[in-house]
Design a protein around this nucleic acid. Structure first.
Ligand SMILES: [Mn+2]
Ligand SMILES: [Mn+2]
Ligand SMILES: [Mn+2]
Ligand SMILES: [Mn+2]
Lengths: 220, 220
DNA sequence: TAAATTTGTTAGTATTGTCTAACATTTTAT
DNA sequence: ATAAAATGTTAGACAATACTAACAAATTTA
Protein backbone atom coordinates (compact mmCIF):
# COMPACT_ATOMS: atom_id res chain seq x y z
CA UNK A 1 0.00 0.00 0.00
CA UNK A 2 1.16 3.54 -0.73
CA UNK A 3 1.13 6.16 2.00
CA UNK A 4 -0.75 9.43 1.77
CA UNK A 5 2.45 11.24 0.80
CA UNK A 6 3.29 8.64 -1.83
CA UNK A 7 -0.18 8.87 -3.33
CA UNK A 8 0.23 12.62 -3.71
CA UNK A 9 3.58 12.19 -5.47
CA UNK A 10 2.10 9.58 -7.81
CA UNK A 11 -0.77 11.83 -8.76
CA UNK A 12 1.49 14.82 -9.36
CA UNK A 13 3.85 12.74 -11.50
CA UNK A 14 1.00 11.46 -13.61
CA UNK A 15 -0.65 14.84 -14.05
CA UNK A 16 2.60 16.60 -14.92
CA UNK A 17 3.45 13.93 -17.48
CA UNK A 18 0.03 14.43 -19.05
CA UNK A 19 0.37 18.20 -19.11
CA UNK A 20 4.00 18.67 -20.07
CA UNK A 21 5.46 15.40 -21.28
CA UNK A 22 8.77 14.99 -19.44
CA UNK A 23 8.74 15.54 -15.70
CA UNK A 24 11.76 16.89 -13.89
CA UNK A 25 12.51 17.24 -10.21
CA UNK A 26 12.08 21.00 -10.21
CA UNK A 27 8.58 20.84 -11.65
CA UNK A 28 7.48 18.04 -9.36
CA UNK A 29 8.91 19.93 -6.41
CA UNK A 30 6.96 23.05 -7.37
CA UNK A 31 3.73 21.18 -8.01
CA UNK A 32 3.85 19.49 -4.62
CA UNK A 33 5.24 22.45 -2.70
CA UNK A 34 8.01 20.22 -1.42
CA UNK A 35 11.71 21.02 -1.64
CA UNK A 36 13.87 19.32 -4.26
CA UNK A 37 16.04 17.17 -1.98
CA UNK A 38 12.91 15.69 -0.47
CA UNK A 39 11.60 14.91 -3.94
CA UNK A 40 14.89 13.31 -4.96
CA UNK A 41 14.85 10.98 -2.00
CA UNK A 42 11.22 10.05 -2.58
CA UNK A 43 12.07 9.26 -6.21
CA UNK A 44 14.75 6.88 -5.00
CA UNK A 45 12.19 5.17 -2.85
CA UNK A 46 9.83 5.04 -5.85
CA UNK A 47 12.59 3.39 -7.88
CA UNK A 48 12.91 0.74 -5.14
CA UNK A 49 9.16 0.22 -5.27
CA UNK A 50 9.28 0.02 -9.09
CA UNK A 51 6.99 3.01 -9.44
CA UNK A 52 9.43 5.13 -11.47
CA UNK A 53 12.42 4.55 -13.71
CA UNK A 54 14.98 6.74 -11.96
CA UNK A 55 18.40 7.79 -13.19
CA UNK A 56 20.29 10.72 -11.71
CA UNK A 57 19.78 13.94 -13.66
CA UNK A 58 17.37 12.26 -16.08
CA UNK A 59 13.68 13.07 -16.46
CA UNK A 60 11.35 11.11 -14.19
CA UNK A 61 9.23 8.42 -15.84
CA UNK A 62 6.48 6.41 -14.17
CA UNK A 63 6.65 2.66 -14.76
CA UNK A 64 3.52 0.86 -15.94
CA UNK A 65 2.91 -0.07 -12.30
CA UNK A 66 3.39 3.57 -11.33
CA UNK A 67 0.93 4.73 -14.00
CA UNK A 68 -1.64 2.22 -12.86
CA UNK A 69 -1.36 3.18 -9.19
CA UNK A 70 -1.39 6.89 -10.05
CA UNK A 71 -4.49 6.32 -12.16
CA UNK A 72 -6.21 4.63 -9.26
CA UNK A 73 -5.53 7.62 -6.98
CA UNK A 74 -6.82 9.98 -9.65
CA UNK A 75 -9.88 7.75 -9.96
CA UNK A 76 -10.53 8.13 -6.23
CA UNK A 77 -10.05 11.90 -6.46
CA UNK A 78 -12.39 12.39 -9.40
CA UNK A 79 -15.07 10.02 -8.16
CA UNK A 80 -15.02 11.96 -4.91
CA UNK A 81 -15.38 15.30 -6.68
CA UNK A 82 -18.32 13.94 -8.66
CA UNK A 83 -19.91 12.53 -5.54
CA UNK A 84 -19.54 15.81 -3.68
CA UNK A 85 -21.20 17.74 -6.49
CA UNK A 86 -23.90 15.26 -7.46
CA UNK A 87 -24.84 13.79 -4.10
CA UNK A 88 -23.84 16.42 -1.57
CA UNK A 89 -24.73 19.63 -3.37
CA UNK A 90 -21.26 21.12 -3.42
CA UNK A 91 -20.37 23.64 -6.09
CA UNK A 92 -17.65 22.64 -8.56
CA UNK A 93 -15.19 25.15 -7.13
CA UNK A 94 -15.53 23.74 -3.60
CA UNK A 95 -14.68 20.10 -4.13
CA UNK A 96 -10.99 19.89 -4.95
CA UNK A 97 -9.55 20.46 -1.48
CA UNK A 98 -11.89 17.96 0.13
CA UNK A 99 -11.20 15.38 -2.60
CA UNK A 100 -7.49 15.95 -2.01
CA UNK A 101 -8.04 14.42 1.44
CA UNK A 102 -10.72 11.83 0.74
CA UNK A 103 -8.71 10.33 -2.13
CA UNK A 104 -6.47 8.78 0.56
CA UNK A 105 -9.21 6.75 2.27
CA UNK A 106 -8.30 3.07 2.24
CA UNK A 107 -11.53 1.29 1.40
CA UNK A 108 -12.16 -0.08 -2.08
CA UNK A 109 -15.79 -0.61 -1.08
CA UNK A 110 -16.24 3.08 -0.27
CA UNK A 111 -15.23 4.16 -3.76
CA UNK A 112 -17.16 1.30 -5.37
CA UNK A 113 -20.27 2.56 -3.62
CA UNK A 114 -19.65 6.09 -4.85
CA UNK A 115 -19.16 4.82 -8.39
CA UNK A 116 -22.34 2.80 -8.22
CA UNK A 117 -24.47 5.58 -6.71
CA UNK A 118 -23.22 7.92 -9.42
CA UNK A 119 -24.03 5.42 -12.18
CA UNK A 120 -20.38 4.85 -13.22
CA UNK A 121 -19.64 8.37 -14.40
CA UNK A 122 -17.03 8.84 -17.13
CA UNK A 123 -15.97 12.35 -16.15
CA UNK A 124 -15.61 14.50 -13.04
CA UNK A 125 -17.40 17.84 -12.44
CA UNK A 126 -14.74 19.66 -14.45
CA UNK A 127 -15.02 17.31 -17.41
CA UNK A 128 -11.80 15.42 -16.68
CA UNK A 129 -12.00 11.70 -17.40
CA UNK A 130 -12.32 9.27 -14.48
CA UNK A 131 -9.82 6.39 -14.82
CA UNK A 132 -11.33 2.90 -14.87
CA UNK A 133 -10.87 0.25 -12.16
CA UNK A 134 -7.42 -0.53 -13.61
CA UNK A 135 -6.31 3.08 -13.44
CA UNK A 136 -6.57 3.43 -17.22
CA UNK A 137 -7.74 6.76 -18.63
CA UNK A 138 -9.70 6.89 -21.87
CA UNK A 139 -8.98 10.25 -23.43
CA UNK A 140 -11.54 12.04 -25.47
CA UNK A 141 -10.12 14.76 -27.66
CA UNK A 142 -11.84 18.08 -27.42
CA UNK A 143 -11.28 21.37 -29.19
CA UNK A 144 -10.46 24.54 -27.38
CA UNK A 145 -13.25 27.05 -27.79
CA UNK A 146 -10.53 29.46 -28.90
CA UNK A 147 -9.84 27.25 -31.93
CA UNK A 148 -13.42 27.40 -33.18
CA UNK A 149 -14.79 29.65 -35.92
CA UNK A 150 -17.52 32.24 -36.17
CA UNK A 151 -20.78 30.38 -36.75
CA UNK A 152 -19.74 27.18 -34.94
CA UNK A 153 -22.17 25.65 -32.46
CA UNK A 154 -20.51 23.60 -29.74
CA UNK A 155 -21.16 21.98 -26.36
CA UNK A 156 -18.97 22.78 -23.36
CA UNK A 157 -17.36 19.50 -22.29
CA UNK A 158 -14.55 20.38 -19.90
CA UNK A 159 -12.52 23.16 -18.35
CA UNK A 160 -8.73 23.19 -18.40
CA UNK A 161 -8.13 25.49 -15.45
CA UNK A 162 -9.95 24.29 -12.35
CA UNK A 163 -8.93 27.03 -9.93
CA UNK A 164 -11.77 28.28 -7.74
CA UNK A 165 -11.18 31.77 -9.18
CA UNK A 166 -11.75 30.67 -12.75
CA UNK A 167 -14.70 28.47 -11.81
CA UNK A 168 -16.32 31.32 -9.90
CA UNK A 169 -15.82 33.56 -12.92
CA UNK A 170 -17.66 30.95 -15.01
CA UNK A 171 -20.43 30.76 -12.38
CA UNK A 172 -20.88 34.52 -12.61
CA UNK A 173 -21.45 34.14 -16.37
CA UNK A 174 -23.72 31.11 -15.88
CA UNK A 175 -21.27 28.96 -17.82
CA UNK A 176 -21.45 25.30 -16.85
CA UNK A 177 -20.62 21.96 -18.49
CA UNK A 178 -23.11 20.84 -21.09
CA UNK A 179 -24.28 24.28 -22.23
CA UNK A 180 -24.56 24.83 -25.98
CA UNK A 181 -22.52 27.76 -27.19
CA UNK A 182 -22.89 29.59 -30.51
CA UNK A 183 -20.02 31.69 -31.73
CA UNK A 184 -21.44 34.93 -33.05
CA UNK A 185 -18.20 36.74 -33.81
CA UNK A 186 -14.45 36.55 -33.29
CA UNK A 187 -12.56 39.81 -32.80
CA UNK A 188 -9.38 39.47 -34.88
CA UNK A 189 -7.39 41.93 -32.78
CA UNK A 190 -7.46 40.14 -29.42
CA UNK A 191 -9.25 36.89 -30.44
CA UNK A 192 -12.02 37.55 -27.96
CA UNK A 193 -15.32 35.91 -28.87
CA UNK A 194 -18.90 37.07 -28.79
CA UNK A 195 -20.95 34.01 -27.92
CA UNK A 196 -24.48 33.18 -26.91
CA UNK A 197 -25.73 30.32 -24.77
CA UNK A 198 -28.49 29.45 -22.34
CA UNK A 199 -30.96 32.23 -21.65
CA UNK A 200 -28.41 35.01 -21.95
CA UNK A 201 -28.29 37.36 -24.87
CA UNK A 202 -24.64 37.44 -25.84
CA UNK A 203 -21.44 37.59 -23.84
CA UNK A 204 -17.90 38.51 -24.78
CA UNK A 205 -15.24 36.06 -23.63
CA UNK A 206 -11.55 36.89 -23.69
CA UNK A 207 -9.12 34.61 -25.51
CA UNK A 208 -7.63 33.70 -22.13
CA UNK A 209 -10.99 32.30 -21.10
CA UNK A 210 -11.72 30.65 -24.47
CA UNK A 211 -8.41 28.79 -24.37
CA UNK A 212 -9.48 27.19 -21.11
CA UNK A 213 -12.84 25.91 -22.33
CA UNK A 214 -12.92 22.53 -24.11
CA UNK A 215 -15.83 21.91 -26.42
CA UNK A 216 -17.36 19.29 -28.68
CA UNK A 217 -18.74 20.10 -32.11
CA UNK A 218 -22.41 19.21 -32.48
CA UNK A 219 -22.81 15.49 -33.32
CA UNK A 220 -23.59 15.16 -37.00
CA UNK B 1 -5.34 21.77 14.88
CA UNK B 2 -4.95 18.24 16.17
CA UNK B 3 -3.22 15.61 14.07
CA UNK B 4 -4.82 12.35 13.02
CA UNK B 5 -2.98 10.54 15.82
CA UNK B 6 -4.04 13.13 18.37
CA UNK B 7 -7.67 12.90 17.27
CA UNK B 8 -7.59 9.15 17.82
CA UNK B 9 -6.15 9.57 21.32
CA UNK B 10 -8.80 12.17 22.17
CA UNK B 11 -11.60 9.93 21.06
CA UNK B 12 -10.26 6.95 22.95
CA UNK B 13 -9.83 9.02 26.12
CA UNK B 14 -13.37 10.31 25.89
CA UNK B 15 -14.91 6.92 25.16
CA UNK B 16 -12.99 5.16 27.92
CA UNK B 17 -13.99 7.82 30.43
CA UNK B 18 -17.62 7.34 29.43
CA UNK B 19 -17.42 3.56 29.67
CA UNK B 20 -15.25 3.08 32.75
CA UNK B 21 -14.89 6.35 34.62
CA UNK B 22 -11.19 6.76 35.34
CA UNK B 23 -8.80 6.20 32.47
CA UNK B 24 -5.32 4.85 33.03
CA UNK B 25 -2.37 4.49 30.70
CA UNK B 26 -2.72 0.71 30.42
CA UNK B 27 -6.32 0.89 29.26
CA UNK B 28 -5.69 3.69 26.81
CA UNK B 29 -2.70 1.80 25.47
CA UNK B 30 -4.81 -1.32 24.93
CA UNK B 31 -7.69 0.57 23.35
CA UNK B 32 -5.41 2.24 20.84
CA UNK B 33 -3.13 -0.73 20.26
CA UNK B 34 -0.17 1.50 21.08
CA UNK B 35 2.52 0.66 23.62
CA UNK B 36 2.49 2.37 27.01
CA UNK B 37 5.62 4.51 26.67
CA UNK B 38 4.20 6.03 23.51
CA UNK B 39 0.97 6.80 25.31
CA UNK B 40 2.83 8.41 28.22
CA UNK B 41 4.72 10.74 25.93
CA UNK B 42 1.56 11.67 24.05
CA UNK B 43 -0.12 12.46 27.37
CA UNK B 44 2.72 14.83 28.18
CA UNK B 45 2.14 16.54 24.88
CA UNK B 46 -1.59 16.69 25.67
CA UNK B 47 -0.77 18.33 28.99
CA UNK B 48 1.23 20.98 27.09
CA UNK B 49 -1.72 21.51 24.78
CA UNK B 50 -4.08 21.72 27.77
CA UNK B 51 -6.08 18.74 26.56
CA UNK B 52 -5.50 16.60 29.69
CA UNK B 53 -4.66 17.17 33.32
CA UNK B 54 -1.59 14.98 33.63
CA UNK B 55 0.23 13.92 36.77
CA UNK B 56 2.62 10.97 36.88
CA UNK B 57 0.97 7.77 38.05
CA UNK B 58 -2.44 9.46 38.34
CA UNK B 59 -5.50 8.66 36.22
CA UNK B 60 -5.81 10.63 32.98
CA UNK B 61 -8.49 13.32 32.89
CA UNK B 62 -9.52 15.33 29.85
CA UNK B 63 -9.77 19.08 30.42
CA UNK B 64 -12.91 20.90 29.30
CA UNK B 65 -11.04 21.84 26.15
CA UNK B 66 -10.06 18.19 25.71
CA UNK B 67 -13.65 17.03 26.16
CA UNK B 68 -14.90 19.54 23.64
CA UNK B 69 -12.33 18.59 21.01
CA UNK B 70 -12.90 14.89 21.65
CA UNK B 71 -16.63 15.45 21.29
CA UNK B 72 -16.08 17.14 17.95
CA UNK B 73 -14.10 14.17 16.65
CA UNK B 74 -16.81 11.80 17.85
CA UNK B 75 -19.35 14.02 16.12
CA UNK B 76 -17.47 13.65 12.84
CA UNK B 77 -17.23 9.89 13.34
CA UNK B 78 -20.90 9.39 14.09
CA UNK B 79 -22.18 11.76 11.41
CA UNK B 80 -20.06 9.83 8.96
CA UNK B 81 -21.46 6.49 10.08
CA UNK B 82 -24.98 7.85 9.72
CA UNK B 83 -24.20 9.25 6.30
CA UNK B 84 -22.72 5.97 5.10
CA UNK B 85 -25.79 4.04 6.20
CA UNK B 86 -28.49 6.53 5.21
CA UNK B 87 -27.05 8.01 2.04
CA UNK B 88 -24.67 5.37 0.73
CA UNK B 89 -26.51 2.16 1.54
CA UNK B 90 -23.87 0.67 3.78
CA UNK B 91 -24.90 -1.87 6.40
CA UNK B 92 -24.39 -0.86 10.04
CA UNK B 93 -21.60 -3.38 10.53
CA UNK B 94 -19.59 -1.96 7.60
CA UNK B 95 -19.28 1.68 8.56
CA UNK B 96 -16.99 1.89 11.56
CA UNK B 97 -13.66 1.31 9.83
CA UNK B 98 -14.42 3.82 7.10
CA UNK B 99 -15.64 6.41 9.62
CA UNK B 100 -12.41 5.84 11.56
CA UNK B 101 -10.62 7.37 8.57
CA UNK B 102 -13.13 9.96 7.37
CA UNK B 103 -13.42 11.46 10.87
CA UNK B 104 -9.98 13.01 10.24
CA UNK B 105 -10.99 15.03 7.17
CA UNK B 106 -10.31 18.71 7.80
CA UNK B 107 -13.32 20.50 6.36
CA UNK B 108 -16.04 21.86 8.61
CA UNK B 109 -18.20 22.40 5.53
CA UNK B 110 -18.02 18.72 4.61
CA UNK B 111 -19.48 17.63 7.94
CA UNK B 112 -21.99 20.48 7.94
CA UNK B 113 -23.25 19.23 4.58
CA UNK B 114 -23.55 15.70 5.94
CA UNK B 115 -25.45 16.96 8.96
CA UNK B 116 -27.79 18.98 6.79
CA UNK B 117 -28.45 16.20 4.26
CA UNK B 118 -29.23 13.87 7.14
CA UNK B 119 -31.62 16.36 8.75
CA UNK B 120 -29.48 16.92 11.88
CA UNK B 121 -29.68 13.40 13.27
CA UNK B 122 -29.44 12.92 17.02
CA UNK B 123 -27.98 9.40 16.95
CA UNK B 124 -25.72 7.27 14.78
CA UNK B 125 -26.71 3.94 13.18
CA UNK B 126 -25.94 2.09 16.43
CA UNK B 127 -28.07 4.45 18.52
CA UNK B 128 -25.12 6.33 20.03
CA UNK B 129 -25.74 10.07 20.45
CA UNK B 130 -24.12 12.50 18.02
CA UNK B 131 -22.42 15.36 19.89
CA UNK B 132 -23.62 18.86 18.97
CA UNK B 133 -21.54 21.50 17.19
CA UNK B 134 -19.83 22.28 20.51
CA UNK B 135 -18.87 18.68 21.10
CA UNK B 136 -21.47 18.32 23.82
CA UNK B 137 -23.28 14.99 24.15
CA UNK B 138 -26.85 14.85 25.37
CA UNK B 139 -27.30 11.48 27.04
CA UNK B 140 -30.57 9.69 26.97
CA UNK B 141 -30.88 6.96 29.54
CA UNK B 142 -32.05 3.65 28.25
CA UNK B 143 -32.75 0.34 29.96
CA UNK B 144 -30.96 -2.82 29.09
CA UNK B 145 -33.35 -5.34 27.61
CA UNK B 146 -31.97 -7.75 30.19
CA UNK B 147 -33.38 -5.53 32.97
CA UNK B 148 -36.94 -5.70 31.64
CA UNK B 149 -39.75 -7.97 32.84
CA UNK B 150 -41.97 -10.56 31.28
CA UNK B 151 -44.88 -8.72 29.63
CA UNK B 152 -42.92 -5.50 28.91
CA UNK B 153 -43.19 -3.96 25.47
CA UNK B 154 -40.18 -1.89 24.45
CA UNK B 155 -38.51 -0.25 21.45
CA UNK B 156 -34.90 -1.05 20.54
CA UNK B 157 -32.99 2.23 20.76
CA UNK B 158 -29.29 1.36 20.73
CA UNK B 159 -26.75 -1.42 20.84
CA UNK B 160 -23.86 -1.46 23.31
CA UNK B 161 -21.50 -3.74 21.45
CA UNK B 162 -20.93 -2.54 17.89
CA UNK B 163 -18.58 -5.27 16.67
CA UNK B 164 -19.37 -6.52 13.17
CA UNK B 165 -19.83 -10.01 14.62
CA UNK B 166 -22.55 -8.92 17.03
CA UNK B 167 -24.21 -6.70 14.41
CA UNK B 168 -24.24 -9.57 11.90
CA UNK B 169 -25.78 -11.80 14.55
CA UNK B 170 -28.53 -9.19 14.97
CA UNK B 171 -28.97 -9.01 11.19
CA UNK B 172 -29.46 -12.76 11.06
CA UNK B 173 -32.29 -12.40 13.58
CA UNK B 174 -33.73 -9.37 11.76
CA UNK B 175 -33.11 -7.22 14.82
CA UNK B 176 -32.61 -3.54 13.96
CA UNK B 177 -33.04 -0.23 15.75
CA UNK B 178 -36.63 0.88 16.15
CA UNK B 179 -38.25 -2.55 16.27
CA UNK B 180 -40.86 -3.09 18.99
CA UNK B 181 -40.08 -6.04 21.21
CA UNK B 182 -42.49 -7.89 23.49
CA UNK B 183 -41.07 -9.98 26.27
CA UNK B 184 -42.98 -13.24 26.34
CA UNK B 185 -40.99 -15.07 29.00
CA UNK B 186 -37.81 -14.87 31.03
CA UNK B 187 -36.02 -18.14 31.85
CA UNK B 188 -34.91 -17.82 35.50
CA UNK B 189 -32.04 -20.28 35.16
CA UNK B 190 -29.93 -18.44 32.53
CA UNK B 191 -31.97 -15.21 32.19
CA UNK B 192 -32.51 -15.88 28.49
CA UNK B 193 -35.63 -14.21 27.08
CA UNK B 194 -38.33 -15.37 24.73
CA UNK B 195 -39.35 -12.31 22.76
CA UNK B 196 -41.40 -11.45 19.70
CA UNK B 197 -40.99 -8.58 17.28
CA UNK B 198 -41.55 -7.71 13.63
CA UNK B 199 -43.00 -10.50 11.55
CA UNK B 200 -41.22 -13.27 13.41
CA UNK B 201 -43.00 -15.67 15.69
CA UNK B 202 -40.83 -15.71 18.78
CA UNK B 203 -37.09 -15.85 19.29
CA UNK B 204 -34.98 -16.79 22.28
CA UNK B 205 -32.20 -14.34 23.11
CA UNK B 206 -29.39 -15.17 25.52
CA UNK B 207 -28.70 -12.91 28.48
CA UNK B 208 -25.39 -11.97 26.86
CA UNK B 209 -27.33 -10.57 23.93
CA UNK B 210 -30.06 -8.93 26.04
CA UNK B 211 -27.44 -7.08 28.08
CA UNK B 212 -26.17 -5.44 24.90
CA UNK B 213 -29.53 -4.18 23.70
CA UNK B 214 -30.73 -0.80 25.01
CA UNK B 215 -34.45 -0.18 24.93
CA UNK B 216 -37.06 2.44 25.67
CA UNK B 217 -40.32 1.64 27.44
CA UNK B 218 -43.37 2.54 25.38
CA UNK B 219 -44.23 6.23 25.78
CA UNK B 220 -47.22 6.47 28.07
C1' DT C 1 4.58 -5.98 56.08
C1' DA C 2 7.24 -8.10 52.70
C1' DA C 3 7.09 -10.14 48.24
C1' DA C 4 5.04 -10.46 43.93
C1' DT C 5 2.49 -8.37 40.40
C1' DT C 6 0.78 -4.69 37.88
C1' DT C 7 1.18 -0.22 36.25
C1' DG C 8 3.81 3.67 34.58
C1' DT C 9 8.08 6.25 33.29
C1' DT C 10 12.74 7.02 31.33
C1' DA C 11 16.19 6.40 27.97
C1' DG C 12 17.48 5.29 23.72
C1' DT C 13 16.28 3.86 18.88
C1' DA C 14 13.68 3.57 14.29
C1' DT C 15 10.87 5.27 10.37
C1' DT C 16 8.64 8.57 7.56
C1' DG C 17 8.70 12.68 5.55
C1' DT C 18 10.26 17.04 5.76
C1' DC C 19 14.02 20.86 5.82
C1' DT C 20 18.72 23.74 4.87
C1' DA C 21 23.44 24.16 3.34
C1' DA C 22 26.84 22.72 0.41
C1' DC C 23 28.29 20.66 -3.65
C1' DA C 24 27.83 18.59 -8.49
C1' DT C 25 26.04 18.36 -13.02
C1' DT C 26 23.74 20.08 -16.97
C1' DT C 27 22.06 23.70 -19.74
C1' DT C 28 22.12 28.40 -21.45
C1' DA C 29 24.19 32.73 -22.60
C1' DT C 30 28.08 35.49 -23.81
C1' DA D 1 34.62 27.69 -25.04
C1' DT D 2 33.99 29.65 -21.00
C1' DA D 3 31.15 31.72 -17.55
C1' DA D 4 26.74 32.02 -15.55
C1' DA D 5 22.45 30.12 -14.45
C1' DA D 6 19.49 26.45 -13.68
C1' DT D 7 18.81 21.95 -12.15
C1' DG D 8 19.76 18.02 -9.21
C1' DT D 9 22.18 15.41 -5.43
C1' DT D 10 24.45 14.58 -0.96
C1' DA D 11 24.92 15.21 3.84
C1' DG D 12 23.12 16.25 8.00
C1' DA D 13 19.28 17.76 10.92
C1' DC D 14 14.58 17.70 12.83
C1' DA D 15 9.62 16.72 14.19
C1' DA D 16 6.12 13.35 14.78
C1' DT D 17 5.02 8.96 16.10
C1' DA D 18 6.12 4.61 17.02
C1' DC D 19 9.08 0.81 19.40
C1' DT D 20 12.06 -2.08 23.14
C1' DA D 21 14.68 -2.54 27.36
C1' DA D 22 15.38 -1.12 31.81
C1' DC D 23 13.85 0.88 35.85
C1' DA D 24 10.46 2.93 39.36
C1' DA D 25 6.16 3.36 41.70
C1' DA D 26 1.85 1.66 43.15
C1' DT D 27 -1.14 -2.02 44.14
C1' DT D 28 -2.27 -6.62 45.34
C1' DT D 29 -1.33 -10.95 47.51
C1' DA D 30 0.42 -13.85 50.87
MN1 LIG E 1 -9.43 18.10 -8.29
MN1 LIG F 1 -4.17 14.31 -1.65
MN1 LIG G 1 -17.92 3.69 15.14
MN1 LIG H 1 -9.64 7.47 13.42
Amino acid sequence: MNSLAEENYLKALFNLATENGDVNVTELSKRLGIKMPTVTSMMKKFAEKKLVHYESYKPLRLTEKGKREAGLVIRKHRLTEMFLVEKMNFAWEEVHDIAEQIEHIQSPLFFEKMDELLGHPKVDPHGSPIPDRNGKIVWKTYDKLSDCQEGDAVTLAAVINTSPEFLKYLNSRKISLGIRIKIRAVEPFDKSMVVSYGKSGSETLSNLVCERLLVEREES
